[in-house]
């Protein structure tokens, strides 16, 4: 019953967001602010995540396939395919569920409990349009960009570590990576990143927008937003894999 209630409120918030998404004048300024906070400001951490994902994957794959029968190019194929299909979308999403999701939930939750959202409404401003819409749009717009960053740094990191550790020669890595490279996998990765961007920002907005119970309530909302966003990201990952592959 509680879950259904929550789902209803969540849908209602999204509906209001959709309806007020035409009030561009209201959220234009906030949109660019959010695009910077979600996109630009997340680039360093996503680069870091990408490089480490690629590196670790290369080393571990090389370790597991160390039999001599399997050509080194297989490692390149496995690493680049895994990164492009799955890891470049999911791992940054999980990290950003903490970074972006927690920030959004805290911001909105704090605005809710200190009556700033009421203040916006009392001035005659549409608070959903002002606060939720720019965050949702920024999430949907910027996560694919971050997916590109993570893909490139991930494959690049794998290539580099393979070369430095001597586990996989660059030529072999590239040979394998190119052999299985297909635009369809990229499309799949992009779809995932869109969905994850939407999930993280919408869950965080929902939890923050309907926060209650003072500072403690904001903390609870933030935790819930982060945890729920992670769970839904993994769930969506599974559903998308089942649907699209």
């Amino acid at each position: 019953m509680h879950a259904l209630n929550q789902l209803g409120r969540y849908s209602n918030l999204l509906y209001q967001g959709l309806r007020s998404s035409t009030e561009f004048r209201t959220y234009r300024k906030n949109l660019f602010q959010e695009l910077v906070k979600i996109g630009y400001d997340s680039v360093p951490i996503v680069i870091l995540v990408g490089i480490f994902t690629g590196s670790v994957l290369t080393i571990q794959t090389a370790y597991q396939l160390e039999s001599g029968f399997i050509p080194a190019s297989t490692i390149g194929a496995i690493v680049s395919e895994s990164i492009l299909i799955e890891l470049a979308a999911v791992i940054p999403a999980l990290v950003l569920a903490g970074k972006v999701g927690a920030r959004i939930a805290t911001e909105l939750g704090n605005m809710r409990v200190t009556e700033q959202i009421d203040a916006l409404e009392s001035m005659g401003l549409n608070s959903v349009s002002f606060l939720v819409v720019p965050r949702l749009i920024a999430g949907i717009a910027m996560f694919p960009v971050l997916y590109i960053v993570a893909s490139v740094t991930g494959v690049g990191g794998g290539l580099l570590v393979g070369h430095l550790s001597g586990a996989v020669p660059t030529a072999d890595f590239l040979k394998g990576a190119r052999m299985f490279f297909s635009p369809a996998n990229l499309v799949f990765g992009f779809v995932k990143s869109y969905v994850f961007g939407f999930i993280i920002t919408s869950v965080a907005c929902f939890k923050g927008y309907y926060a209650s119970g003072g500072a403690e309530g904001v903390g609870r909302s933030t935790t819930e937003a982060t945890v729920m966003a992670c769970i839904y990201v993994l769930l969506a990952d599974f559903i998308l894999a089942a649907l699209l592959l």
Binding site: T114, E115, D118, A119, S122
Partner: peptide
């Protein structure tokens, strides 16, 4: 929202942004 603009509201915690 038009009607709300007839009102000025001072919140308990001031609700400054």
């Amino acid at each position: 929202r038009k009607v709300r603009q007839k009102f000025g509201l001072l919140f308990q915690g001031a609700a400054l942004f």
